[in-house]
Design a binder for these strands. Structure first.
Lengths: 203, 203, 203, 203
DNA sequence: GATGAATGAGGATTCATTCAT
DNA sequence: TATGAATGAATCCTCATTCAT
């Protein structure tokens, strides 16, 4: 029922072109107000062509998230690899999260607004890529605990929810403010809170 | 364009009956899959009657949030009044946020899922009640700073985003887990993080 | 899933008006080439109103057949009641079959052409009313056998197939000829064949 | 607009392969539910190739009928040639009609169901091959009249309609019964009816 | 000749909203 | 006030057909 990234280069190219067009179209018009025809026009193809690459409109939405999240995760993992300290990694994570969305305003709008659809099937399609991000954060927290930096009394899942929830809310407020200020300027304050919130009290 | 709470008691009664019916209906079917006819049936009235009390379907959604948020804020303020310490108040806030939604599952579903619509006009209607909650939290933070408890270096807005974002994410994960565990059991961990995250280092 | 004739007079009136409009529209444009909008226009109502009375376009087609077949059967039964001889009844049947369709050209077109859709669900919806006609003919044949008029060696079902098949083919040819000749003029020849074909040889 | 059987052997071979594939595909899925792509897949060729041999989907349907009817007529004529008595010929005809369709279930499904489309152009394309069968039957009847066997008072056309209509209805009922019984077992009864129905009373 | 990716016209159906009663 | 029958705009998706390769 759902699409997969085509293996053949030529097909993959058009597949990604539709993904990018859809991202822009969704960000501009909003999911429910963005007709398939608008995506097609943005991609410079016929309406029907969309359905050679995607099962339906919902599948386009979910696929945009999956593809963009893949890119996000790949880049983030590469950066995290350069560090060992959980504290440094946390800093890298928050910085990257903010920087990436600040550099990709349509993606920010898409993730913070368009993606929040109440349709159960959309929720389901989003769950998997999101889960991977969740797990990456939880791994980071567990590493911090092993390194004796993070408070082992705090359950990892709650810590992850605080970290992700904080970043998510900050980005949301930024998006709803029409991005009038720099998102990254929040990094220091968030990190201050999160670091002292998660670390063991060091006398 | 938007409705107001009717002053006359009889009208107000039916108005609130529709609000409650809509909350249940939205929670059960989801906003887009919940026809106005379903709200009317749940309220035991005719479809057309809804439009004597609300401008349109969007207005019903926004009004549900406004009314329920009013109740929420009234109760929360009453509780906070009993305390002066910002730390205690933070504890009261988090406890109340979790307890209230745990006791009102339909409201939890409504707020975490149905409310997240991408329609600009809905976003706008939600903004005002939400802003009041934001301000209440920010006031609490400022009090903490004045009391010398909270770190004055952290901008109040960011602190509020961390507090609200953490709670919001925790409730969301709970709702999406089909509420299989107790929401309140997260209170201690969150408070641990938030308190040590926000307070000044005390040697 | 399928519609039922409304009991309330006012609703029944509009229901029948749609049935009649659909009969004309189907006969004029053909089922697949007859948009729901054309039925609505013919009935002088809005497109959506059709769906207050019928589940879908298919249901309209099937209901037209059911209603028209009901009328047909009611009238036919009333006529048959006036006779006891199976031979006379056969004559009444064939005469009525031809006369009725000759007087209702749209119905003839509808039954001989539009109704012959390959969709399985349509076939299914048509089956029941058609079966009643089949059974009426078979009852007539069995009476003839009991009266010692019809050949008891011939299986009733085959006899029915010959009677119905003959009439059906004659009406079809007449419809496809654009009804350029009188359908009823075939009555005598058909009856001659059927009567001597079915009766016992009387030396 | 319509296709012709290619003269060149190689082309004719693929032409017939498509015909056979289409027969199976139409019988399996039904005309409207059978996409051109399904015919192509069944034939093991590309979608576009169909259009090198046929004008359009309708043309495929009509051509299937034309080709299969040609085979049918060729075989039937060869059999009839072996007899001179109209009564014998009638017997051969009915036997062959039933046997042929019983041996070719897809063809039976195709003729009794898929072919009955309301599209005027399809009806037109079918008319010619069907007319030839009609004429063959009428010739047989006229021979019977000349031989003093068949009742000359009965108009030939009506007699043909009874013969064809009877056979057609019997096959239809058999197809709709999912071919659960032997079609041929009806031969004797039909012939009994038709023979005594058409022959002159012989004292 | 053969392919199959691309096209884009076409339509049944839903449902928020209205308004005559 | 309340009703609920009627409205009609709005759109995703299919699939026969084309044509560049």
């Amino acid at each position: 029922m759902s699409s997969k990234v085509p293996a053949e280069p030529r097909k993959r190219e058009k597949y990604m072109a539709i993904i990018d067009a859809a991202l822009e179209a969704f960000a501009e018009y909003g999911y429910h107000n963005c007709q398939v025809a608008k995506i097609a026009r943005q991609a410079g193809i016929a309406d029907g062509t969309i359905y050679l690459y995607f099962a339906n409109k919902e599948d386009v939405l979910v696929s945009v998230y999956r593809e963009k999240m893949n890119e996000f995760m790949t880049q983030l993992k590469a950066l995290l690899q350069l560090h060992t300290s959980a504290l440094e990694k946390l800093s890298v994570l928050v910085n990257f999260h903010f920087n990436h969305l600040e550099k990709n305003p349509s993606l920010a709008n898409f993730i913070q607004i368009q993606l929040r659809q109440s349709d159960a099937s959309i929720r389901l399609g989003i769950a998997e890529p999101l889960k991977q991000y969740y797990q990456l954060i939880e791994t980071l927290i567990d590493e911090g605990k092993e390194q004796g930096i993070f408070n082992p009394q705090i359950r990892t899942k709650v810590a992850r929810e605080v970290i992700f929830g904080s970043m998510d809310e900050i980005v949301s407020c930024w998006v709803f403010s029409s991005k009038k200020y720099s998102l990254s300027k929040n990094v220091d304050d968030v990190l201050t809170i999160l670091k002292s919130g998660l670390t063991v009290y060091q006398s």
